[in-house]
Design a protein around this nucleic acid. Structure first.
Length: 707
DNA sequence: GCCCCCGCCACGCGT
DNA sequence: TGGCGGGGGC
């Protein structure tokens, strides 16, 4: 057994797998078998007798967590009921569902995503009589996030907490922030930052709770460590760094060249802090790439070597193959789409590949339409990961909001979404009346509604009789579903969650609503209803999944609050993978297309701009590390894209592209010039649409020589 | 008091 | 492309 494992690993990999005790830092280059090392390491732990429940493996995305779990399962053939492999956020939720009452919330708290948060901020601004249409709600959300995660400190000395102007701007919103926080508490709701910050708060203030978790978890693993934020690091540290038990058994795995989430708070200093906080770190470097051909890897190295301030690595590959990197320039996005379709067909025939061997990577979600159109035209099956989540669609959000309100009637944001959807004749003024009373009593809307509707006879109400009746019906409906779902019903009538949701959709007459809303276009109504049916189906699948141990409405809501749509599509085989570069991290495909490799897209113009309001204190004093500059992060993003390819890489770029309502001229991405030109093949025989690589480079050098 | 329609604006990545 | 806010219509 032991030898079987040894045969499958190289020397540094084996060392990483065998070192189970003490702090370990694994620097894992792209394609160096990182996932394999992590899964084998967990298997080795289990084999050596470490109990499942003592292991905590934290990943960055749900996709990575699932992948890891299924591979460990495959490797060990065990049920993994008490092994914790999850994202930081999901782990935070797990703790909070147990412990949050100590902070004065209830266990059925709602989780607010970006959209919900923006709604709440909007409402809060209204209450504070501040802001206007012009207010940058997104920027304000970022500011609030920075405040909450401790990256922005109120009224600090200038130079520590941003410029004086930024401070002034932020101070203006201090009241709004406090009100926002207050509302969250009244609504029994948490935003994404709370999921990380509140567990730490609990641990810091309640040592007995911390002890409970410290004695349970004794082996820690963190994947994609370069993408962890300061708060995430603190969560790891408070659990793993137990002064009474040293050394800590912590293994972090990362690659600074693949750090692409600094805009979400990823903190490169975590690596330095880790080495300081956990003395005696054993550092292991994985430098052999098993994924890509030498050509592709050299192209990637050529690009990334333009970044300064990186950890030196000698990534090499023994995999030869002269199918180089191919560059293709087309007139417009239509040509780009058909080029990709053609190449897919070509490879399928010549190399007998299936559809799922192809990955099409894009910088932004908005670029996906073009490719999708081409695929529909060419009859190529595809699946989209990331992007507008299935759960963000209006019809799904509506039904989800019903489920959230059923779970937590204090949840004002979701209540407001559904109170008049489908229309019940409860308009702005009625809502204003309810919300005034709620504010006066410092309660949620639901409580105010109860007061207004269920007044004793003879007491006059500010609401019209008809409105009161409608509200009463609405509330009774929610309550009856609450009873049904939470089992306050006789056993024989008990329905599954999927059945209950389906019955809810019928009950509120959502189909009639859709027909009425889209009276002009029944097709859209039908399509939306189909989505709802799919949604109910996915609940059903989940309920029937034997690997799901925690069932019920709360567990379901937890799950959908933290995942994005592509989840259920993971097992859809036989489709071309269309996704953003960010979503592609950690994945690989035999053939990769990087589409829209144009200046302004990679690097993205908006990433190079600074959002003054959101940037708290980081960019100060000696200036930030150049490794964190936006341009370098965009380059790393491009590097990540290139290194997804195993055998063949195509990069496409358009001369012009439709954007918004107009057509704009495009230049190829400046990063293309950083790929050693001898590695690039530009087809010079495939018609007027292609341009020789050298010509493209000459043009680019011209453009960028003054920058 | 509620709803409908029109015109305006924005498309960076995701837990 | 659609989501949203404001104004006018019912």
């Amino acid at each position: 057994m032991e030898t079987a494992i040894e045969k499958q690993l190289n020397a540094p990999q084996l060392e990483a797998v065998k070192t189970l005790e003490g702090p370990v830092l694994i620097i894992a280059g792209a394609g160096s078998g990182k996932t394999r090392v992590i899964t084998y390491r967990i298997a080795a732990m289990l084999k050596s007798g470490i109990p499942q429940h003592a292991i905590l493996a934290l990943t960055f995305t749900n996709k990575a967590a699932r992948e890891m779990e299924s591979r460990v399962k495959e490797l060990t053939g065990k049920k993994l009921q008490s092994l914790t492999i999850s994202t930081f956020h999901a782990f935070g939720v797990k703790i909070l569902r147990e412990e949050i009452e100590i902070l004065g919330y209830r266990k059925n708290f709602s989780i607010y995503d970006e959209t919900d948060r923006t709604e709440l901020i909007k409402e809060t601004l209204r209450e504070c009589r501040m802001g206007s249409e012009k207010t940058n709600l997104y920027g304000l959300g970022q500011l609030f996030s920075n405040i909450k995660t401790g990256k922005f400190i109120w009224r600090n000395a200038p130079g520590i907490a941003g410029t004086a102007g930024e401070l002034l701007e932020a101070a203006k919103y201090e009241r709004v922030y406090k009100e926002y926080q207050n509302s969250l508490k009244v609504y029994n709701a948490l935003d994404f930052d709370d999921l990380l910050v509140l567990p730490i708060t609990i641990f810091e203030n309640h040592p007995e709770i911390l002890d409970k978790y410290r004695s349970r978890y004794r082996y820690f693993m963190v994947d994609e460590f370069q993408d962890t934020s300061l708060v995430q690091y603190n969560m790891l540290r408070i659990l793993a760094l137990n002064p009474e038990k040293s050394p800590a058994n912590v293994c972090v795995v990362g690659d600074d060249d693949q750090s692409i989430y600094s805009w979400r708070g990823a903190n490169y200093e975590n690596l330095l802090m880790f080495e300081k906080d956990f003395p005696g770190v054993k550092e292991i470097k994985l430098e052999q790439n098993y994924r890509s051909t030498t050509t592709i890897l050299e192209a990637a190295n050529g690009v990334i070597s333009h970044n300064t301030n990186r950890k030196e690595k000698k990534l090499w590959s023994g995999k030869t193959g002269d199918s180089g990197v191919e560059l293709h320039v087309t007139e417009n996005e239509g040509g780009e789409g058909s080029f990709i379709s053609e190449k897919i067909r070509e490879h399928m025939i010549n190399d007998s590949l299936g559809y799922d061997a192809f990955g099409v990577l894009l910088r932004t979600n908005s670029l996906m339409h073009n490719i999708e159109e081409a695929f529909l035209e060419a009859n190529i099956p595809y699946k989209v990961s990331g992007g507008m989540s299935f759960f963000q669609r209006k019809e799904i959000k509506d039904i989800l909001s019903y489920m959230r309100v059923i779970a937590n009637t204090s949840d004002d944001v979701n209540l407001l979404r559904i109170i008049n959807t489908p229309r019940r004749g409860i308009g702005k003024n009625s809502i204003q009346t309810i919300s005034d009373l709620a504010r006066k009593n410092k309660t949620c809307l639901w409580d105010a509604m109860e007061r207004l509707c269920r007044l004793p006879l003879g007491v006059s109400s500010p609401l019209a009789q008809k409105t009161r009746a409608e509200l009463d019906t609405f509330m009774s409906m929610i309550e009856s579903f609450r009873d049904r779902i939470f089992g306050r019903q006789e056993e024989q009538k008990k329905m599954t969650l999927a059945e209950n949701v389906s019955s809810l959709v019928d009950h509120i007459n959502y189909w009639s609503y859709l027909v009425a809303e889209f009276s002009k276009n029944e097709k859209i109504a039908r399509w939306r209803y189909t989505n709802i049916e799919y949604f109910v189906q996915s609940i059903d699948n989940w309920e029937k999944d034997p690997d799901v141990f925690d069932k019920g409405l709360y567990a379901w809501l937890n799950r959908v609050s933290l995942i994005n749509s592509s989840d259920d599509k993971d097992n859809e085989k036989g489709k071309v993978n269309l996704m953003t570069i960010h979503a592609a991290k950690g994945l690989e495909f035999p053939v990769v297309f990087i589409a829209a490799a144009e200046d302004g897209i990679i690097p993205h113009t908006r990433s190079l701009e600074d959002s003054a309001l959101a940037n708290g204190k980081e960019n100060n004093e000696n200036g930030e590390s150049p490794a964190l500059g936006p341009m370098e992060e965009e380059r790393r993003l491009f590097y990540v894209a290139i290194t997804r390819a195993r055998d063949k890489l195509y990069i496409t770029s358009c001369k012009q592209r439709r954007r918004l309502q107009e057509t704009v001229e495009c230049a190829p991405s400046p990063f293309l010039a950083e790929i050693p030109s001898h590695l690039i093949k530009a087809p010079d025989d495939s018609g007027d649409e292609s341009i020789k690589a050298e010509k493209v480079f000459a043009k680019m050098r011209e453009r960028f020589k003054n920058i």
